[in-house]
Amino acid sequence: MKSAPKITVLDYGSGNVRSAVRALEHVGAEVTLSHASEDVLNADGLLVPGVGAFAAVMEQLKKVDALRWIGRRVAGGRPVLGICVGLQVLFEEGVEHGVSTPGMGEWPGTVERLAAEVVPHMGWNTVEPPEGSRLFAGIEDERFYFVHSYGVQRWDFDVSQPAMTPPQVTWSEHGGRFISAVENGPLCATQFHPEKSGDAGAELLRNWLRTLG
């Protein structure tokens, strides 16, 4: 019998981590809530939650030295899943109230206020995953739960290097198109909250666990 995948949920002061822990346990993972380097580096998968402002999350990640450990995992091809602001900080920068904060720079793009009459974008919405998406396999037409005021609304990935496989990008709409998920080899992230998205969110987490090998 195959052993349960060992997942670390990064504990760095972000809210709502318990629901992520429970959701992963529900789909069969063995979960540790920690920011210790050995737990972050040695887990089969790392989940990076994020609630609140881009700048505050970046500051909290720095305080526990998490940026270094996340970077180590990404560089080593070890699976990472970001959620909500955990997706946003993987981009180059976030702009809030006219102030720019550098992100991790794993992907090109700027996190900006959504171009919608009603903000925050709160509630259920559809997604437009690309063909061949592993995260959305079997749940391409489902709805997922969003709570956010900011997002990445343009994708400018450089595909001039033929040896590079471009990331798969999923889009949603709220006053305009924004990125709702990215799949980039071992590095994946969702703008929505799978842990709050019922059966569809649970299946997405199962799909992620299946990618861990």
Rank of each mutant, 00 (worst) to 15 (best):
P5H: 14
P5Y: 14
I7E: 13
I7A: 15
L10H: 06
Y12S: 06
Y12D: 05
G13A: 12
G13H: 12
N16T: 04
R18Y: 04
R18I: 06
R22Y: 03
R22A: 02
R22I: 02
L24G: 15
H26E: 10
V27D: 09
E30Q: 13
E30S: 14
V31Y: 11
T32D: 01
L33D: 01
S34Y: 00
S34T: 10
S34D: 03
A36W: 08
E38P: 06
V40D: 00
V40Y: 01
L41M: 11
D44G: 12
G45D: 09
G45L: 14
L46P: 00
L47T: 02
L47Y: 03
L47H: 03
A53T: 00
F54Y: 07
V57N: 03
Q60N: 07
L61A: 00
L61Y: 07
V64G: 01
V64W: 01
D65R: 04
A66N: 03
A66T: 04
W69Y: 07
W69D: 05
I70Q: 00
R72G: 01
R73D: 03
V74K: 00
A75K: 09
G76H: 01
G76A: 11
G77W: 02
P79Y: 12
V80L: 05
G82Q: 08
G82W: 06
I83Q: 05
C84L: 02
G86F: 02
L87T: 10
L90Y: 03
F91E: 00
E92Q: 03
E93T: 00
E93M: 03
E93L: 05
E93A: 03
G94D: 08
E96W: 02
E96C: 02
V99Q: 08
T101V: 00
T101G: 01
G103M: 03
M104E: 01
G105S: 04
E106F: 04
E106Y: 03
V111M: 00
E112L: 11
L114Y: 10
L114K: 11
A115T: 14
A115I: 05
E117A: 10
V118T: 13
P120M: 08
P120L: 09
H121E: 09
N125I: 14
N125T: 12
T126W: 08
P130C: 11
S133T: 12
L135G: 06
L135N: 12
G138Q: 15
G138Y: 15
E140V: 14
D141G: 07
D141A: 10
E142Q: 15
E142I: 08
F146I: 13
F146L: 11
F146G: 14
V147F: 12
H148K: 10
G151C: 12
V152F: 05
V152G: 07
D156H: 09
P162M: 06
T165F: 06
P166T: 15
V169D: 08
T170Q: 05
E173M: 13
H174V: 03
G176H: 10
R177E: 06
R177P: 05
F178D: 06
I179K: 10
G185F: 06
A189T: 07
T190V: 13
F192N: 06
E203M: 14
L204E: 13
L204H: 09
N207I: 13
W208Y: 13
W208Q: 11
L209Y: 11
L209M: 13
T211M: 15
